Simulated assay, not measured.
Amino acid sequence: MIARRCWALAAVVLCVLTTTFALAQSVPELSGQPNPMETAGAKPMPKWIVDDIRKMRNYPDQPPIIPHSIDGYQLSVNTNRCMSCHRREMTEGSGAPMISVTHYMTREGQMLADVSPRRYFCTACHVPQAESRPLVDNVFKDMSDLGVKPAGAEQ
């Protein structure tokens, strides 16, 4: 009886150790130094992509990326520099795309005369794009790459 308990305990310990080792090997190191207590210099900042070319989105409802530099832009409760070009009234003069009409709606879908406070801080969703290596390989496959045809397409 005691021998069975010892074998069962040994099997559980072996499973826990094996699982822990396997997880430690499969989790990628995203950032930081191998020894976190060491002081090391910061990596250089990546170069921003500032070509003003609108990029294709990777998935439906992805917020568009910002294709220009936003260094020095003020984004506070009182000021939003993005709105000087992207607000509906400013797009004709600036040539910038207008922000989505959803930014003028409340959570309940009621239209507002101005940008909704919950959509006012642009960089909560929209980010500039940098020339940098991904931290983790992207294995996403679009539905069209999987052979799914759009509705109404001939089979």
Rank of each mutant, 00 (worst) to 15 (best):
A3N: 13
R5F: 12
W7D: 03
L9A: 15
A10I: 03
A10D: 03
L14Y: 07
L17C: 13
L17K: 00
T19L: 08
T20V: 04
F21K: 10
A22G: 09
L23Q: 06
A24L: 13
S26N: 09
L30P: 04
G32C: 07
Q33H: 12
Q33D: 09
Q33F: 10
M37P: 00
M37S: 10
E38H: 11
E38M: 06
T39K: 12
T39P: 02
A40S: 04
A40M: 02
M45H: 06
P46K: 06
P46S: 02
K47E: 14
K47L: 07
I49W: 05
V50P: 00
D51H: 00
D52A: 13
D52N: 15
D52V: 07
I53A: 11
K55A: 15
M56V: 13
Y59C: 08
Y59H: 09
Q62W: 00
I65T: 09
I66K: 00
H68D: 00
H68K: 03
S69T: 14
D71W: 11
G72Y: 05
Y73Q: 04
V77K: 15
N78Y: 12
N80I: 01
R81A: 15
S84E: 10
C85A: 08
E89C: 02
M90F: 09
E92L: 13
G93C: 02
G95H: 04
A96S: 08
A96F: 05
M98G: 14
M98D: 06
V101N: 15
Y104C: 07
M105N: 01
M105L: 15
M105A: 00
T106M: 07
R107E: 14
G109Y: 06
Q110T: 14
V115P: 01
S116I: 05
R119Q: 12
R133K: 13
D137M: 11
D137P: 13
V139K: 10
F140D: 01
D142P: 02
D142Q: 12
S144K: 13
S144D: 05
D145K: 10
D145W: 06
G147M: 06
V148S: 03
P150Q: 05
P150A: 00
G152M: 08
Q155G: 09
